[in-house]
Every structure is written in C-alpha cells, then in structure tokens.
Design a protein around this nucleic acid. Structure first.
Lengths: 181, 181
DNA sequence: GTCGCAATAGTCTATTTGGACTGATAGATT
DNA sequence: AATCTATCAGTCCAAATAGACTATTGCGAC
C-alpha cells in the first residue's frame, strides 16, 4: 500500500505495471504483495480518493489498462504514513527472530552448524548487494534513491557479526546448554 | 506455528493458554498470531500428527479445554523448521525498510525530523530492553533462554547507529536531495 | 450476599489474500 | 505463413485470517 503510493508518486501507472516495477526494482517489496491483493488495494485507494483513474488505454483488443495517478490527498496520505512509520519504531518479527527464540531445541552442535551456514550465506549475499549498490552509485544514481539498500546492508552486517559472536561463544563455552533440555 | 510448536516443546498446553503465554512472554510473537488463527493452526497440526490431544479438562461448566502435547513427529518437524529457517537467510521486509525506500518524499527536513524522533524512541526502548535482559540474567535465567532478546537488541543498536549516521550526512550535506523531486 | 468486572475459552463470520484461470498480443521458430 | 511461447493485464474464487461474539466463572467491592 505504501509502496504503491510511493510508486505512483513518481509517475502514473496501471496496476499491473506497478506490480512489475515493484517486483523488479526490489527483492524486498516483491513478496509483500501479490496480484490478487493489488487490484483490491488500488480499488480501495481510489475509493478513498488517494488515487484517481487517469483513463483507460487499450492497445488492440487487450484488457483495458486503467492508469491511475496520485491525487493531492494521496500524496498527503503518503507523507503522513511515511512520517508515522519512520517516527514510531514498531517491533518487527522476522522468521529468524522466531527461530532464534527456540535455538535451544537444536542442541549446541545443531545450532552452531545452522548458524554457521547462515552466516556464510549472509556474507555471500551481502557481498553481492554491496556490488550492486556500488554499481548503481557509479552509474550516477543519487544516494537518496538507494538509501534503503544501505540500510538493509547495515542490518545484514550487524546480523552476521552477531551470529559470529554467538558461534564464538558456543565454541569457547561462553554459551552453554542447560543440562536438562 | 513455529512458536506454537516451540511452546508445546516445553510443556503440553491448551490453545488459549498457548496464546496467553506467547503474548506475555514476548512482545515479538504477540502480533504474529491471533485467536482466530490459532485454533485452526492447532487443528491443522493435530491433523498432521505433530500434536495430539492429551484429553479434555473442564473446570465447572466452562468450555472444554483440550490440552495438546507435542508428538515425536511434531518435535522432529520443529527441529526441521528451526534448522531451515536459521540456515536460509530470507529477505525480510520491515515497515521501516518500506518507508525508508521513499524517504525522499519527506524532504530533507521532514526526513531528518522523523529519523531523529525514531532514533530517540529506539534508544529509550533499547535501554528498557537492556534493563529487562540484565534483570532476567541476574535472576538466573540461562543465557540461551534470552538469546533472542540479545539478537533483537543487537539489531536495534545497529539501526540506531545507521540512523545517526544518516542524520549526520543530512546535516553535513553528504546526503542531498535531488533538485527536482 | 450479590453485583459487576475481568479473565477464561472457544466459535463464527465477514474480509482479505494468494494464486489459478482467462484471453489477448508480439515476437521467435520452423 | 503458421504455429508456439512468453508476456501482458485483469478477474475470480477457495482458503486463510482477524477479530467480534458468546458463555462461564472467580474475585473484589459494596
């Protein structure tokens, strides 16, 4: 929803196009929305007068592509939401956090093995992301446009470091398993 | 789902009890499940033979409380999932990441204001969480049982540091807004 | 003692969602 | 030229979900 408003801020688009761009531009937002929901979402936003149909285009006999543009109210709403979501840190729950909670169930060796593999994969991915980011910047993209990649990288690095520390603690015996599991 | 299995690993419980404990023990898992889903989830898990009804208790004329316990198959499934979710780092999408993506729309001042407030709140919360964690450890809780709090804290600190760096960059002019918004 | 409120447990339904299905076109292949 | 496939664009429905609703009980206040 926020992402949809954000995209329409850049330029008017029809729903399918919104989805494709979201998909392509970021692995992050990809999973957050599916086609089924999108059309409902856009309809709801039109109802709320945050977007308005700019008109139907059709090339040949294809389904009509209704192009929507952001209304001033929509723009205001976007800003309101951005501001609120940045101001208020919510507790977010990742899969990993959920899994770490029950780390004990894996036993010391199982936990160490799984964590080590994660750290490795995380490092690979981080390196790839760093490459893409550097590339984008080199190609002249304003830093502001890739700021979220910077943030994601920062968190990924922190996570990797944490995992390394925990692995160390497991190996040195600073983190032990209670005798009765 | 994983959280439910995790709780049942500790001791058999009836659905409502599972929910209450999840709610109370962690702000994190709280939002991840609601009552409506829980009963369906437990039913599905029973279907899959990961849990089995230990029997119905009733005190007075209250609704029957069906107590479930983890089966060996359920335990295996829990371990399988834990292992997989730890091994494979998925791209997770927080509200904040989504908002940061469109940070530009707030303008330099709006962005700086919102980020500064977030950093402040984050610091407060982090301090409180650190306190709770220290308290729990002092009370003799094994570190393994509070490991997820450690992780959450680590990420929160990284986020705060990143925000501070961005704020600095905005003030020093290292992060600028492209002229045409 | 009894009135009311909070907590306990679970069920039920209106909404939301994911993703299967339709159907059209442009470009590639033979 | 005919066919085949990938992409485009949207609709639609079965399944999952959130949270409103019901019903009971224990405890505190008066």
């Amino acid at each position: 929803m926020l992402a949809v408003l954000g995209l329409l801020l850049e330029r008017p688009a029809h729903p399918y196009q919104i989805l494709s761009e979201l998909r392509e531009r970021s692995d992050s937002h990809a999973a957050a929305i599916t086609r089924g929901t999108l059309y409902n979402t856009v309809a709801a936003m039109a109802e709320a007068d945050w977007v308005s149909a700019l008109g139907q285009q059709r090339s040949g006999n294809r389904p009509e592509r209704t192009v929507y543009e952001l209304t001033p109210a929509g723009r205001a709403e976007l800003v309101r939401r951005l501001d609120s979501q940045i101001r208020n840190p919510e507790r977010e729950f990742s899969r990993f956090l959920g899994a770490v909670t029950y780390l004990g169930a894996l036993g010391p060796d199982g936990a160490a093995g799984a964590l080590a593999e994660r750290a490795g994969r995380l490092r690979e991915r981080t390196a790839a992301d760093e490459g893409r980011l550097a590339e984008a910047l080199a190609a002249g993209a304003p830093r502001l446009f890739v700021i979220e990649a910077e943030y994601a990288l920062c968190l990924a690095r922190a996570e990797t470091a944490w995992i390394d520390a925990v692995l160390d603690d497991i190996h040195t015996g600073a983190l032990t398993w209670p005798p009765a599991g």
